[in-house]
Design a protein around this nucleic acid. Structure first.
Lengths: 216, 216
DNA sequence: GTCTATACGATGATAGAC
DNA sequence: GTCTATCATCGTATAGAC
């Protein structure tokens, strides 16, 4: 692995762990094992390195959220992506950037973050719209709005988990969102299950796709 | 206003705006107008000042969330607190601390944040439990879990808003949560569904609402 | 590309006079 | 309590040799 790659890798990790403002070139050099001269040869400023590292982190995030576009029925994809295993105490590589004062002040860094979230939103919204169109949700569900809600549950779940130093609140927060989502699904053929929603982990079977039209 | 108070006030604002790690004693002095000698007389270290300022910010937050315990029916209190006017682009005074690397590394600062969130959670959960007990929700709603979900929507909504530099995503995220909440309220009249214990309790909440759409 | 040496302002204080 | 002076270290580079 060459120096440039090691620098980007180290900075990507540090952006995740410590953010931008409180990460010094010194830490990057120590973690990467790259010397002073090499570092400033490849990246004239700390900010240039951060740009490259942030792009890397954003690409990671985008590839994870690609499962929203995957095969299977749309509601299952949404539920699966919501409940996908995540390290709550590490938080979101990209979401963290929004809390960094020096990122907020830097239009170029902020624009990358804005773009990443806009793309994530559009993936969530598309899957949700497909679910509505397939009759999996009550047809008064607004997919774009709900997409923001689910993204917020994840981003905010990280905040709660870090505050308590415990992944529990994150897991509960998204589980509660899943419960609510299911309350907004269109009634399936026979809903006689009596327990509280949430005993099962993810629903993978074919959707309750009843093509009945709205009755209001 | 004396020097001590001006210092705490300035630091409280800076913690909110820039966090802890990236706020320097110099900035505090400039904003407060207090001199070097005075500052270190009142607060031997930056951290001591931050402790006082964070306690102040936490108290502010607690007094805001007191409306969850207020008069009125519980579901209305929950909805009102969820939708209370908030400056999305400023974010949460306390939630922001969870993203500050130097706060995360400091057990005492982190403990204050943990305690603040634990208390907020218990207020949300109590109001939600009252709503369930009053028959305002489907009785399979888990109040503690839902409390985390709603807190996460707010905390995460700030992240989305800051990322886009637009309060819109925050407003949509919480509005979507409100829509889902209402989908989980107990229907007004009994459905064709078998008798549930307590299904005859008086309803105090809003109509058997369906989620409202964005373009209502 | 990588190394060592150097620079200069900012950070987070401490010392001691008034 | 407040002031000014001083300080060691860090952050963020730049210069120039190899």
């Amino acid at each position: 692995m060459d120096s440039r790659e090691r620098l980007v890798q180290a900075m990507s990790e540090l952006l995740w762990e410590r953010g931008y403002a409180d990460t010094s070139p010194r830490e990057v050099r120590q973690r990467s094992g790259v010397g002073q001269g090499s570092m400033y040869h490849h990246f004239p400023t700390k900010r240039d390195l951060a740009l490259a590292a942030l792009e890397r982190n954003i690409a990671d995030l985008a590839s994870a959220s690609a499962e929203l576009d995957g095969p299977g029925d749309p509601l299952s994809r949404v539920e699966a992506h919501l409940m996908r295993p995540r390290d709550a105490l590490k938080g979101c590589k990209v979401g963290r950037m929004t809390q960094d004062p020096q990122v907020r002040e830097d239009p170029e860094l902020l624009a990358l973050v804005a773009r990443a979230f806009a793309e994530a939103h559009s993936r969530w919204a598309r899957a949700l719209r497909e679910a509505v169109d397939a009759g999996q949700f009550r047809d008064d569900v607004d997919p774009e709005r709900l997409a923001y809600t689910l993204m917020a549950v994840l981003q905010g779940g990280y905040v709660l988990a870090i505050a308590q130093q415990d992944p529990g609140p994150f897991e509960e927060a998204r589980r509660g969102a899943l419960d609510l989502l299911r309350a907004a699904t269109r009634p399936a053929t026979t809903t006689t299950h009596g327990g509280r929603p949430g005993a099962d982990s993810t629903r993978a079977g074919p959707a309750p796709t009843s093509p009945t039209r709205k009755s209001e």
